[in-house]
Write a protein that binds this DNA or RNA. Structure first.
Length: 219
DNA sequence: TGATTGATGTACT
DNA sequence: GTACATCAATCAC
């Protein structure tokens, strides 16, 4: 398998609001000891700078959130609930202080058996192996060691153009009620309509957004 | 120095 | 539908 080249820095150098939908349909790849674990991104959420009460950047720049304030196209990986990892792509404009896109779900496309093994759920359907932010980190072998990694530099961890197309779903972000109005209700979550790999449904997003994802003629 | 809190997933009723 | 595992970062004194 020919490894697809990473998308350039310019792809990531925009507001998380813009990158989140653009990432739907692209490929997330991880080279682990020569084994490629990869999936098509089907669900993302945008987190903005300090003004966003749902964003980790709300407390300003700290040790944990440092990468969110750094150059776009890098990984921001953090521990969640003391036991899970979550993977973000740093994204913001020159004018924005910070921002990142949480990748919530991928459809596994390479190294599926290894992903199943890493999940420890040998009977799970491939479509559900990485249907959730913590699940995808476990399936693709992403952990704290990957925090700060440059996703534009190619292996071991990078993002490449994908071929998936389809309508986009848009809705409120998941589990951010603590942020209060208006942040908890803003439609900053994006998903590939009809994908079997979404982490959960899209309440309040009945009609697909009129947009296409990147790429060609394939599903 | 101590207390609270999650950008979740799994098991169970 | 509910309970709960588990801990670094952050917040309250």
């Amino acid at each position: 398998m020919e490894l697809p080249p990473p998308l350039p820095r310019a792809f990531h150098a925009r507001s998380a609001i813009d990158l989140a939908p653009a990432l739907i349909g692209t490929l997330l790849l991880h080279d682990v000891d020569g084994m490629i674990l990869a999936g098509t991104i089907v669900e993302t959420e945008a987190y903005l700078g300090p003004a966003d009460r749902a964003s980790h950047a709300r407390a300003g720049r700290t040790r944990r959130t440092g990468p969110m304030f750094g150059p776009p196209g890098h990984a921001y990986v953090y521990r969640l609930y003391g036991m899970h990892w979550a993977f973000n792509v740093v994204a913001h404009t020159e004018d924005e202080e910070a921002g990142a896109v949480l990748v919530r779900a991928v459809l596994p496309v390479a190294g599926i058996e290894e992903q199943r093994r890493r999940r420890g759920r040998p009977t799970d359907r491939a479509e559900r192996l990485a249907a959730g932010p913590a699940r995808l980190c476990q399936a693709l072998g992403i952990s704290g060691e990957d925090g700060g990694r440059d996703l534009v530099a190619g292996p071991p961890l990078w993002i490449a153009a994908g071929t998936a197309t389809g309508a986009l779903l848009q809705g409120p972000r998941v589990n951010v009620a603590y942020a209060g109005d208006p942040w908890a209700a803003l439609p900053l979550r994006f998903g590939l309509a009809g994908s079997p790999s979404l982490s959960r449904g899209f309440p309040g997003a009945a009609s697909p957004a009129s947009r296409r994802t990147t790429g060609g003629p394939d599903e």
